[in-house]
Amino acid sequence: MKRKLFDFLNFFILFTVLTAVWWFLYLLKIWPSWVLPSPWSVFAKIFSGLADFSLVSGMFISLGRVIFGFSLSFIFGTLIGFLISKNIWLKTYFKPLILGLQTLPSICWLPLALLWFGLNEKAIIFVVIMGTVLSVTISVESAIANISSNYIKAGLILGANKINLYKYIIFPAILPSYINAARQGWSFAWRSLMSGEMLFITVGLGQLLMFGRELNDMSQVMAVMIVIIIVGAFFDQAIFAGIEKRIRLKWGLTNR
């Protein structure tokens, strides 16, 4: 409890100092205010956006998309990862292909998605999935490849059959890496979604960001950027980091 309060205080001080520096730079008037707006006008934008629900609805629309796309990617990525790890043929020929595709920035899938699905929801979800599923696949595959062979041996010698080996040894053994894969997948999904949303009428946070640009309203641009960071970081910290920490504590991989 004390620890948490301390962490929060530290965070608060850091936030205050950063804002102060920002304000100070603004007061120096080196740049015009449409390049560097004052922190207060940005915060005011956030509050007005929350008050008139434009930011709130944008946030919920984007969250709905990312949760849908992420869940699908997570399920498929896991399945493909397990398949590749099981099949030597897939491992030899399919894994290099996946590693290669992973180097393609997710936004590069958008033109293809627009031609396939048109200017709609499906195209965006497709971009999110393509940006996420490969990273999950690769993480799951490498997690399985890195299980200590002694765990498998111990499981076999204690009489685990194939199904039980997966259920009671392989899956629990990769759990810490698996949560990490999810966490990484989440941030990939969020990033892919934002880049996708900026490019056409999507009513998500990405489009609100682009509106700011079109209106030359730097305060709006920065306000939406801050909201995007907060939403992404909130899920990363509140959900994935929490689960990861609980597992690491249980396994004795960390003390705190």
């Binding site: 200590s148 002694n150 040894i169 629990p172 249980k250 396994w251």
Partner: peptide, 9 residues
Amino acid sequence: FQDPTLFPW
């Protein structure tokens, strides 16, 4: 084994 290989989970 030399290593106890208890299942940490």
